[in-house]
Design a protein around this nucleic acid. Structure first.
Lengths: 190, 190
DNA sequence: CCACCTCCGTACGCCACCGTATGGAACAGC
DNA sequence: GCTGTTCCATACGGTGGCGTACGGAGGTGG
């Protein structure tokens, strides 16, 4: 938003991610983003080959920062069971409003897109593997750990979707802690 | 696809739903659909006021048939617990490939859209109420029944999303029955 | 200070889709 | 079979986005 004279490629990817969060893949459009940056597409086509190049760069940046954020968030809790609880509580609680949450929803909505699909596949695989690892470390045998991680992750995905699409259908703000507790208890019950 | 000379409004909504299933909300475009029907938009603008009117009609038709289908499917099983199992098995099993499944995914992806949101809200509310009713009839107290139904429905939503976006991350075809059993057991455990 | 390289503004052509106007084909009733 | 209504094809203008061409501003090294 500042009136910087000259822009970098990163300025464009950042603006693209902002547009992605606001209006989904379709909003990642060169001319509107140029306007939001107070410049023109003459600048854009210097830094990037085309719209797809911008989208790809933005997706890769999101993938990187998202991975880093989750790792940083998770590493702060050494105890395994508490780590899982912290993870689920954050995911089910204000899962939508965390940084990058709206981007993630937009990507899920455009999972078909050829540039989005591989990014989503990698992120999903990493998260599921990590969850499986966590359940395994909690004493679940490999097969059961995988099943638990799948149920946990699909519940997360669905919850995010529900909270976004029809928030009035989900648990109310004050009923949420109890709901999170129930989900965690259910998922970790043997 | 037949070479019928004259079309009805319903022909257009059906074609719109087909387009919706193929390419999402963005694919519900007048001219491409006209081409797919072997006609021109001269026809379209006689039957409908505009693109939004077509979309709205298609959404209402989907809502109606979807509700009817689920009711018909469910009424065929009188026993409550078996009804729930049948429901979950169908939802988690080949949930994507059932009729209207791709439409539903497209709507979830465009939950923001002003015409989609109310339809999705009604369908979601109906399903959640029905699930809650089912869990309550199985002996769960109201609050717990609501929590179970939320967990079940978010798991369904997430599973559908996962199966669509990254099917390789979900349970494999032969591991699916065991997974469904685990989910059902977990959700109905007291 | 000047020549060059980096970055950006403007103008252009292209495509896809929306919605309108209008004439004409196809059918219905009599 | 004539007339009026129903339905559709064609042509047009408008909008919004993509990508290219090109000229010029503004830093930068010699």
């Amino acid at each position: 938003m500042a009136e910087r004279k000259r822009l970098t490629a990163h300025d464009w990817t950042a603006a693209a991610l902002a547009a992605l969060a606001r209006g989904g893949i379709a909003a990642v459009a060169v001319e509107p983003i140029a306007a939001s940056l107070g410049t023109t597409k003459g600048s854009f086509y210097w830094h990037f080959g085309g719209r797809d190049a911008l989208l790809e760069a933005a997706l890769l940046e999101w993938e990187r920062t998202d991975t880093d954020d989750v790792i940083a968030f998770v590493e702060s809790e050494p105890d395994l069971i508490r780590r899982l609880r912290k993870l689920l509580a954050a995911a089910l609680g204000s899962g939508i409003e965390r940084p990058g949450g709206r981007v993630e929803l937009a990507l899920q909505a455009s999972a078909d897109h050829p540039l989005v699909a591989p990014v989503l596949a990698r992120v999903t695989a990493r998260r599921l593997d990590y969850l499986t690892e966590l359940f395994a470390a909690l004493g679940f045998p490999p097969g059961a750990a995988r099943q638990r991680s799948l149920l946990a992750y699909t519940a997360y995905l669905g919850h995010a979707q529900l909270a976004h699409a029809t928030p009035e259908a989900g648990p109310s703000a004050d009923a949420l802690p109890a709901y999170v507790d129930t989900v965690i208890a259910t998922l970790t019950a043997r």
